[in-house]
Design a binder for these strands. Sequence first.
RNA 1: GGUCCCGUGACCGAGAGGCUAGGUAGUGGUCUGCAAAACCAUGUACAGCGGUUCGAAUCCGCUCGGGACCUCCA
Length: 495
Amino acid sequence: MRELKIFNTLTRKKEVFEPVTEGYVGMYVCGPTVYSNAHLGNVRTFLTFDVLFRYLRTIGYKVRYVRNITDVGHLVGDGDEGEDKIGKIAKLEKLEPMEVVQRYTNDFHQVLEQFNFLPPSVEPTATGHMIEQIEAVKDLIEKGLAYESKGSVYFDIEKYNEKGGSYGKLSGRILEDLLNETRELDGQSEKRNPLDFAIWKNASPEHIMQWPSPWGMGFPGWHLECTCMSTKYLGDQFDIHGGGMDLKFPHHECEIAQGSSLTGKDPVRYWMHTNMLTVNGQKMSKSLGNSFLPAQLFAGDHELLDQPYSPMTVRFFMLQSQYRSTLDFSNDALKGSQKAFRRLLNGLRIVKTLEFVSSETEIEEKKKTDVVKAIEGFYDALGDDLNTAVGIAHLFTMLKYINMIYMNQLPAAALGETTFNALKEKYVLFFEDVLGLQEEQNGSDVAVLNGMLEIYKEYKANRQFDKIDQIRAYFKDNGMVIKDLKHRIDWAWEE
RNA sequence: GGUCCCGUGACCGAGAGGCUAGGUAGUGGUCUGCAAAACCAUGUACAGCGGUUCGAAUCCGCUCGGGACCUCCA
């Protein structure tokens, strides 16, 4: 098994990954609250873990990837006092809450599919784990770490810390500072301490999402679902927990508090947090109103865009940066990625057709080493805290040799058969399986294209250049170009 | 106000004490009916000012600029 280093938020260091159980990885990622459309910022986070999932499998791990859907309990506005997000939309649009949930769950799935994400192993929902959550609340009360107040139940931060917990350790916060800085909010009288958070909320009669519980009708607190679902499917302590940086505090901090209180174990070994996607240097977020919807991007239908960009272009664009850096979203950057991605994509088509031809040619050691280094470099880069940017740099080195062979600038034999085959095999593996990039279909029929190329050849033999230009124009209109090479005629996606 | 992060060439973006990241754009070349593609060559970039060091984009300090979290957010 190749070594994987992960930057662990808990220790603020890169650590060599060691799974709880050899050969197996349990990974949990906080999924979306399905009350609105997924935007590109959300996509970046899920993309990071999609690539991690793919990479872990590629290097031989058996991975159970759990990504939840939050369909209740996530409140609008401040702390524990707002309305349920889904309930609010349901009321506004006069829908059943489950209709809201279904609509945006479908949207979420559709978006992820467009970006070629692998489905997780388990995709649990909060409403589907009501019993587990109620049991967890009971348990926490019994352990003296939670208390009931007016039909709601709160987690007791002070008790937790008295018993050896250290609330704030993930986000680097000091409890005293937090206590001093907490803003006074209305209705906090229900809590003993402003930092305490709801694990069960009392529901007023008009609240449309509620369930019976020992504390009356109500619904679970947001943080609790992740604790219940992660430990249910991955165990009391599991390997990797991921999410956006903005969930570090308080959401993940609360998960640690709940999880370790319930099981006596620190629930997560490696915490990973993805950085934000920014627009003009500012975080893309729903509340700031600067978010892009994938559909707007694909249609080019946004004031900041002057053309559409395909899902794979965007996927590639995001992979060109490291997940812990902010990534700024701009037209110019996207354009560069589009061109670069098409080059790589044409390389994919080409490499699949290349065959080794043995010849008298001597092996060119320098080039051979170059290829081998690029292949190893790709693995090393991904193994170094998922550095896809560096991985892609190595992919471009591989592309260069693929192109040289294809163009007859370098005989395949100069690399030696083993290296040639590795180049061919790994390029496809890295591109498709690890990075999750793929050909984007536009419905062109390869047989028809090849027929046109035959005609092109005839015209060329007859030096009928006007006809040739016509064919070229036709290809261009369809996003393709004809590659008129010395030794062959082929087509490629226009870059 | 508290905690933390970032500022890299025309643009995007890796790296994190000595070793050409990469991509896009530009320029020159090889090739070509012409193109395109491909390949080759080409940029003395690391916000500013000090300091540590044989050596700093990388470490330390200050200044300027930007951002995140502290409240729902991936």
